[in-house]
Design a protein around this nucleic acid. Structure first.
Lengths: 333, 333
DNA sequence: CATTTTCACGAAACCGTATTCGTAAATAAA
DNA sequence: TTTATTTACGAATACGGTTTCGTGAAAATG
């Protein structure tokens, strides 16, 4: 890289390096005229400041990280857009880091962040994440963390979530209202907040109606999950209603039903937590609990930036619960 | 951040800063015993090197960027995974930057990269991108660029693409074979390589059969596109076959057909370039030209890393065309 | 007119790491 | 034993900005 730097600008203008730096940062110490000359020359020479130099000196990187399990999920891809929209407005760059639902990956990523690579972190924990030591360590190094969607109970950080419990309850009640008595809940992991909260809502509804629980934990392997769901739907007392806690599992239910020649919604009714835009075009169209993904992303980013601006803010004070919406479609009617 | 740095390690071990640095980088100048002691102490004190200092000094950031229009697209989200899998293996970090199909955004992002923030760039140009000055400028600063999927003809950079022309031809031939004579092509932009190549394939097929072209350029606004498609399908001579060049447009066709009470595939047959995992579960299931997204990502990343390792490689020599697959499903049968 | 204040700028230190160069001690070669 | 070489390390400088501190000149104040 043939990089134009401040020194080059200084020479060109017969000014000192410090004057250039101050002019570029709009310091009051520099006259308007000089500032103007500097800006003009910078534009002319196509000067771009070296972010590493300034981060090194300034101890601020103007980078924030999004740590999520994957991007191939409608919730996350929408949330990313929300986050980006506010980060960009405040001059922050966004790093997207993928854990692939793997705890070791998540640990390694956060460990890296201890170096000061990012000023703050937005995260949705992996389904394998059971303890928060790695997160606590990061917070101890004064890198603020904000959870969105998937939070970890033990860690005292800001959390922007949706009303998982109520949504789980409402969705289950809907299935019961449709005549289902045997309803299965497909969870992701016994460690995962969203899975547990949604399941708690499911349980409450089932309890109120005196119906038995039927809970299945899926893994992060689609093949295993396919088998799991297939076995479930092959049993003589197969459930007539299924509440899937994440998008990927719903897709598998469609597949299994097709392979087993089961009819949705006649044989099996399905409701899923999902933000799929094409839910309405599936066959049958998919009843979803649709989360405010974009808004949650915006809120999470806004909270993080607030923490970055004023150190002494109470993280819990920024907590937020944004409600989801149950959208009835063919798969459960 | 209370950061442990090399100086702290040096003090702790009664060694000089330079010795520590060399030991950490496994220099031949340092004895095995000392290296061992240093590594041990580094682990004990939880040392994480400051990436900014190292990038500033070393002129290498170990970062590569992915510049794409959006993440909420199955092709891109899969390609990201492919890229990440090879980058991670070589110790590179991945920055994902979104243009939202906007040329100004793309320009601003690349301009930023002139500062040395990343060592190289993988990109799929926005649909608005008509000229490549901003890309050329970056390459002139010795930041290698590799196109994947959407390339810009005028820029002499490595390109990893799929066989858009043949795929367009095959897809069109399939529709013709199904009895369609009035077939519309839904393009994205007259500037976009993939759109044009796919259209060229369409044209060749139509020409061969003596059928008239019918080409519609969509914008990046879903609302506008909805109207455009609706108008097309409301006309008395509405097409009985549609070839959509990107995923988003196919979704709209489903919507319009539903709103106009048109039956797929009886009234309208649809083929789309898409990597949607749930294409098979749509109603009707969607015939797709499925691209090797993951492989293209891997190939693109591998090419970029090769360019980063040996400066004197000929970019064009790394070009690659990976074929797509036409998967027949209900929407066109 | 003398003194204080403001203005506009420059010199130099600093951020944490990498690398070049120099060197004392240990070892090998003559 | 003398000289040449290797080994293992430290001092110093550089990377490109930012910031603190100092200062001469101009402007304001008394």
């Amino acid at each position: 890289m043939k990089q134009i730097n401040i020194k080059a600008l200084a020479q060109e203008l017969n000014l000192s390096v410090s004057t250039i730096s101050k002019a570029l940062r709009d310091s009051y110490e520099i006259s308007e005229e000089t500032k103007h000359r500097v800006l003009e020359m910078a534009a002319k020479l196509n000067y771009t400041p070296n972010p590493y130099a300034s981060s090194l000196r300034g101890k601020k990187s103007k980078n924030i990280a999004i740590v999520i399990p994957e991007v191939a999920d409608s919730f996350f891809s929408q949330a990313i857009n929300g986050i980006e929209s506010v980060a960009k407005g405040k001059g922050y760059h966004v790093l997207i880091c993928l854990t692939h639902e793997n705890f070791e990956n998540e640990q390694a990523i956060l460990k890296e962040f201890q170096s000061g690579r990012v000023d703050g972190v937005l995260m949705s924990v992996s389904s394998e994440t059971a303890s928060g030591g790695h997160i606590q360590e990061l917070i101890a190094k004064e890198v603020p963390v904000v959870f969105f969607d998937r939070a970890l109970g033990e860690v005292p950080a800001t959390r922007i979530v949706t009303d998982d419990f109520q949504s789980g309850y409402k969705a289950t009640m809907h299935l019961i209202g449709q005549g289902c008595r045997n309803i299965a809940f497909l969870g992701v992991s016994s460690k995962l907040s969203i899975s547990n909260d949604r399941m708690a809502g499911y349980r409450k509804a089932m309890e109120e109606k005196g119906l038995p629980f039927r809970e299945i934990y899926c893994s992060s392997s689609p093949e295993e999950n396919y088998t799991l769901i297939k076995e479930m739907l092959q049993q003589p007392d197969r459930p007539c209603g299924v509440l899937a806690s994440v998008e990927k599992l719903a897709t598998l239910v469609y597949q299994v039903c097709s392979d087993l020649q089961l009819n949705m919604p006649a044989d099996v009714k399905l409701v899923c937590f999902s933000n799929l835009g094409i839910a309405a075009m599936l066959y049958p169209s998919l009843t979803t609990v649709t989360q405010p993904a974009f808004e949650m992303g915006k809120a999470a980013a806004a909270a993080l930036l607030k923490l970055l601006e004023k150190k002494n803010t109470d993280p819990a004070g920024l907590n937020m619960v944004i409600p989801s919406e149950l959208i009835l479609r063919g798969s459960s009617l």
